[in-house]
Design a protein around this nucleic acid. Sequence first.
DNA 1: TATGAATGAGCATTCATTCAT
DNA 2: CATGAATGAATGCTCATTCAT
Lengths: 194, 194, 194, 194
Amino acid sequence: MTGTARSKRADARRNEQTLLDAAAAVFVSSGVDAPVRAIAKKAGVGMGTIYRHFPTRADLIVAVYRHQVEACVEAAPRLLREAATPYAALTRWVDQFVDFLATKHGLAGVMQSSSADFEALHKYFLERLVPVCAELLTAAVESGEVHQHVEAYSLMRGIGNLCVFADGDARYDPGRMTRLLLAGLTQPDLADPG
Amino acid sequence: MTGTARSKRADARRNEQTLLDAAAAVFVSSGVDAPVRAIAKKAGVGMGTIYRHFPTRADLIVAVYRHQVEACVEAAPRLLREAATPYAALTRWVDQFVDFLATKHGLAGVMQSSSADFEALHKYFLERLVPVCAELLTAAVESGEVHQHVEAYSLMRGIGNLCVFADGDARYDPGRMTRLLLAGLTQPDLADPG
Amino acid sequence: MTGTARSKRADARRNEQTLLDAAAAVFVSSGVDAPVRAIAKKAGVGMGTIYRHFPTRADLIVAVYRHQVEACVEAAPRLLREAATPYAALTRWVDQFVDFLATKHGLAGVMQSSSADFEALHKYFLERLVPVCAELLTAAVESGEVHQHVEAYSLMRGIGNLCVFADGDARYDPGRMTRLLLAGLTQPDLADPG
Amino acid sequence: MTGTARSKRADARRNEQTLLDAAAAVFVSSGVDAPVRAIAKKAGVGMGTIYRHFPTRADLIVAVYRHQVEACVEAAPRLLREAATPYAALTRWVDQFVDFLATKHGLAGVMQSSSADFEALHKYFLERLVPVCAELLTAAVESGEVHQHVEAYSLMRGIGNLCVFADGDARYDPGRMTRLLLAGLTQPDLADPG
DNA sequence: TATGAATGAGCATTCATTCAT
DNA sequence: CATGAATGAATGCTCATTCAT
């Protein structure tokens, strides 16, 4: 009995992983808005299977990226310990996030979408990442490295945006751009030119 | 005959302006992805008329925003003359561009898109703006204000990205973000934390 | 110009009639819930054409049956004038309505549905028919022929129900049943058997 | 062995009752068209179990309502004995049937349906009830109370129809309507108004 | 040249039914 | 025998695009 249940669960889990892999692949090539049919086809399953495992698209997207988001969350304390300074930790943390996000076609957009369909996704990303970012940011302010005030939410949004449409364009380097953005934070004051 | 032809052309021009005004209005309320039908209705013309004047959506979007893009292009020399420094000119130029872009629901996204559908749009924006941006950037480098090397193309893309999904989110300020990005350019060196 | 417009309108009108005929035919064979695709196919048009002419299913159903409903509405005064008594007028009016309704597979059901989708339909049928029925009923009460009190709404619902699933069953005669129902109204009192 | 078999059968019966109770509950809240999944969930069993016990939905519906249908069947002789007259017995019998049917969301509709899916259901209801109704009707004719000729089949269909869409509409009373229908049967003659 | 009716591909979603475990 | 995961047909609806008038 337990054996049967266990093997079924194992099957389902295996299948779920197949789904997540397929979805990840399709998201890369067609964006996170890719047709459910396309994902199902890639995974070699029926559409119903997708809906069974992930009732909403937001659920699927969260599931696809959860590991990497959690990895970001978990990386922060370590970076804060290991990096030379809080600002260095922030920089490396942002690097990691950018490495994750830059190739996820459309994720940045949907991650901050206010559409009801993506409510859960929006919440998940922000709830997990904003506090971590805030911690790093605060530490960097307190260490005297960051002089500009920016809300963690706003910074995350900016970083997310810098990653939009980044894949497939060799001439655009989101990592470089985020580094510059962070460098801007260290500026004592921004002269007002107008 | 000439008179008729002339007045016909005048008619056509008037007509086209009506179209552009209508499109601009609809773009504001429904984004640049708004159904052609909606634009035609707003303009009080048939859909065929829109297709006649603007075969692709990219053509229409370019036409709608051409004036403002050209205004950006033309503003650069003046800013370079009038601003206290080249960097100040660059900053004010970027401000102007952001003011334009940030409120155009969906424009930033579509402008950056590498989708074949928006090829023309993408090209137009970059062809017009990148050289101007390059000029300002070069001047700011030469004045010793900007220390970081960045291609104008890359910077334009970054600025454009910072404007994505900006409207409707009171907590995110694309102007502030672009200022920080530009501030990053003035940094003598970016310590490598990893 | 007028000519062109006129011919277009004529085309559209012709087309609309084709649509209504097709819908009526499909409603008979498959009920008023028939797939839009089926109606479109029967009419030899694309689905979009259906949606263009009749944005909601309720709109389509109303359009299909409007003539007959209006015929019922208009018949009442004449019947009241011509029939021997108000009760006779009521009877003949109900006969006419039953003749209309009995073959309209599913119409009775949807006509009284409280579903939001059929709101318009529901309202149309009841707003048109209940007042007429009330008039006939009142007259028959005042003439001393009808002794049982029944709201016109309730009677219409009952008559409608008696027509459900009537087509295709030779052994069930909704006309006969409604006659009996009406005959019940003339009864001075209903003994209470329990 | 016998003991095991017996207890297995007892188990099965218990199980089946659980299913029926669950189905009845779901039918009340979601109608007799409720998804199989919902019923299985309510019963705490897999969907396969439902299919094993009741291969078609009609089988399930029949099983759910069999007791009440049989109660109707069995009530007739008693009513015929106890009621003041055969017509009174008929009236009370119909009342009982209406009380049963009117609150079974969708049952009346499906019971009357000639759809192949519900063939078995349709047949069961009519085969059980028509003979009983015929008996009551004949008695009432013979007692001189009923003057109108109606086949029991036709009457049952009419009564069933009067119960359609009855729940959820406070302004429609199927009991009242069936009483009127029966009252119509007592009428000596129906004048032909045309 | 302008109009807008018509087309139909494309996508989301639900659920009856089957069958491997 | 029971379970419930998987399948995929069915259906509603939108909108870009074409083309007869």
